[in-house]
Design a protein around this nucleic acid. Sequence first.
DNA 1: CCAAAAGTGTTCACCGTACACCCATGA
DNA 2: TCATGGGTGTACGGTGAACACTTTTGG
Lengths: 226, 226
Amino acid sequence: MAMSSERYSQTPLFVRAEVVIFTILGDRLGLLLGKRGRPPDRGRWALPGGFVPIDEDLESSALRKLRENTVASGVYLEQLYTFGSPDRDPRGRVISVAYYALIPADPAKQTSGHGQGRDAGWFTIDGLPELALDHADIVAKARRRLVSKLDYSTIALQLLPKTFTLRELQDVYEILLGAPLDKRNFRKWVIAMAQLEETGGERRDGPHRPAKLYRHRFPGQVAFFR
Amino acid sequence: MAMSSERYSQTPLFVRAEVVIFTILGDRLGLLLGKRGRPPDRGRWALPGGFVPIDEDLESSALRKLRENTVASGVYLEQLYTFGSPDRDPRGRVISVAYYALIPADPAKQTSGHGQGRDAGWFTIDGLPELALDHADIVAKARRRLVSKLDYSTIALQLLPKTFTLRELQDVYEILLGAPLDKRNFRKWVIAMAQLEETGGERRDGPHRPAKLYRHRFPGQVAFFR
DNA sequence: CCAAAAGTGTTCACCGTACACCCATGA
DNA sequence: TCATGGGTGTACGGTGAACACTTTTGG
């Protein structure tokens, strides 16, 4: 049986789940990192993650990591890619099944830098510290995946509360795409594409005209086309 | 350390690579299966795959399985998804990193049914036998992925030889999409989209006008947009 | 009344789609 | 000459892109 290669090696085999937890931090895309407390790369910042218990489902494991690190619930979580180069982790053969999650923007964590204490914090994606192991590759891949889904899915809604203004939604797109969008064209397009409807309420902030609030017509679902 | 869960369990942990090897069989999408020679699901048809040796890269392992089962070289191979439900395999905790591969159509295997002997063979995707374990899920996911890439990539070219006629390429699209396409519109679209150029040669088969041969302008690359 | 953000329509270019006939070949 | 598949163009509607002014509010 092909398992026999195990017998000729003392290299231990592990499976981990790592989660790229994205959110909107002010006017930037942000993600959550934790500081490693032990080797390898002790003291470096790393993605939330952990070894998958032998009887726990991969996605459950990722979800648990998500919950251990945030207060979010009902959050978007998607498997991203599995990283398994033999030499990516000095502890042995470590297979990391990477996920990414989207957390609604929350003014509470808009304080850039670190928002959760000395060994965990939110960082903006263009101001990341050097990451442990190959976590920079994981982050890059997650970011590409997220951006590529913008124009044929409603995934961006997962980065906002259940109700939001069109300006807020446009901000999310502009942050992710890194380019400004035309307000009128964006509104026409996104209302139709994402099936948005007005809630009737409005948001007033500052000495401005209040903005209408919108919601997804089918809340709880992420619509995809293609 | 979270590895400790290992100590409290005698369930063995394995990592496997499985490969969905697609090709064109006549006028159908086909894939390669092997008959399992041992439990679990002994005697059932299953995807080519195997346990990943402790020092072999995941993709190398998938590529090796591909080469063990076909004579193809320079073949498209892409990681698909990782399947890891705790109860998906009775041998223990088995994490299967699934890949899919595309093999150019080859008249030699156009004999439907089984083309490689009693315990390996090509099957058309709509005439699959009952598959071992959760391999039907893997196949379904691979098929969706392949089809979804048709209209923003040149991936379909990987199912044809280096030179091909536009009719052959249209056949591939129609087989995968399950719907007929307009010949004139398809040609205009695909020549521009996939950057095709005439080779100068032509293919003559039967009492018909010979068809021009085309090739990808940048051979060896799979162009993606978005 | 002023500053600041919300909200709104039209025009144009391009692209995807529908659609039918002639051409080249070997038998 | 005939059967078979190869090859080609045009008209139309819809969609993405460019573009500027009025409205509403709190201070």
